[in-house]
Structure formats: C-alpha cells, structure tokens
C-alpha cells in the first residue's frame, strides 16, 4: 500500500469569523472528502489579530484526502493556518516599521493575507513615544511550502503602498 493511502491524524488550525454557522460550514469539506473528525478545540475568547476565532481541528485522513480537504477549506474562504504536516506551512517572520497605527495595521494584515496567501499567526507591536511616530511590529506568518519568496514579494508590495518598511528574513539559498 502506498504511503499516500494510509490514514493519519492531522491537526488543522482554522480561523473563523465570529458568526453563527461558520464552524459547521467549515467542517463540511472534512466529511465530504472522507476525513474522520477526531476532535474540535474551540478557543472561545481567544482572538486572532484580525478578530477571528481560532479553532483547532484534528482530522484523520489519508494524506491525499487531507490535501483535498485543505484546498477545499481554502477555496471556501476559510483561513487555514497550520495544515498539519510541515509541507503545508513554512513559518516566516518579518518586521514591519513605519506609521503602523495611522496606516491601519489590521487592514495591512488583512491585505498581507489576501495578497500573499500566507496567514498571520502572531503579531507583536511596539508603539513608539509620540515624538517619534514610527512603530515596529514583528509578524509571524505561515506560508505554503515553497511559496515564501512569493509571499514576501507580495508583502513588500502591500507595505510599499503604505510607505512602510519590511525587514525580511533570508530565504533564498540558506538562512544561516
């Protein structure tokens, strides 16, 4: 039996809008594609930087089916942050410097996700004193494997439009 045919447990972190029915809708593709729902951990009270609710779901499925589940989830507009196995997610940390608050940080983050197809996993913000209006943020993103360069390019573009500076990690070649 090929490895692609063996069912395995996968953890998916979904970010859902806080609206009735969102969770149920999100779970549909799992059954639809032959996945077996093992557990749901609903982090109520906990919010993502964009005000969504993170939900952690354990699914048992063959890697092939799991791939289909994840892409269907994404197609239906659900934010999938960590799709279990590493090959779905490459972590990427960038610093963002500039007038972050005045240029609407949450809009910036939404645009990052929209344009880069990476998800914002974590944001730390330091707002400088008034005399110096420049603030800094550290943003951790999860990108699809092999797509960090593309994601970075998109992030640079969004930032440039708001006159923000991105300090990016080394990606091409090696990061040492």
């Amino acid at each position: 039996m090929s490895e692609r045919m063996v069912p395995r447990a996968h953890t998916v972190r979904l970010e859902l809008d806080d609206e009735p029915g969102k969770l149920l809708n999100a779970l549909d593709p799992i059954a639809e594609h032959g996945g077996n729902l093992l557990s749901i951990f609903h982090e109520r009270g906990n919010r993502t930087p964009r005000g969504q609710i993170p939900v952690e779901v354990d699914v048992e499925a063959t890697p092939e089916r799991f791939d289909r589940i994840v892409s269907t989830l994404r197609e239906t507009g659900v934010n999938v942050v960590q799709a279990g196995a590493e090959r779905y997610s490459e972590e990427l940390t960038v610093l963002l410097v500039g007038r972050l608050i005045e240029t609407d940080l949450s809009d910036t983050l939404t645009q990052f996700e929209h344009c880069s197809s990476a998800s914002v996993a974590d944001v730390s913000l330091t707002v400088a004193d008034e005399t110096d209006e420049v603030s800094s943020a550290r943003i951790r993103l999860a990108a699809h494997a092999g797509e960090t360069d593309r994601a970075l390019a998109a992030i640079h573009e969004v930032a440039a439009e708001k006159d923000l500076t991105v300090i990016s990690p080394l990606t091409r070649g090696d990061s040492g």
Binding site: T93, S124, T126, S136, R138, I167
Partner: peptide, 15 residues
C-alpha cells in the same frame, strides 16, 4: 530608518 524598537522585537524572538 530602523528604530530601536525593531531591534528589540527582533531580539525577543532570537533574531
């Protein structure tokens, strides 16, 4: 253009 805060945020994360 790099503020001190950017270096602090980087350091908190081992960078």
């Amino acid at each position: 253009e790099i503020p001190g805060t950017a270096l602090q945020l980087a350091a908190e994360d081992g960078r």
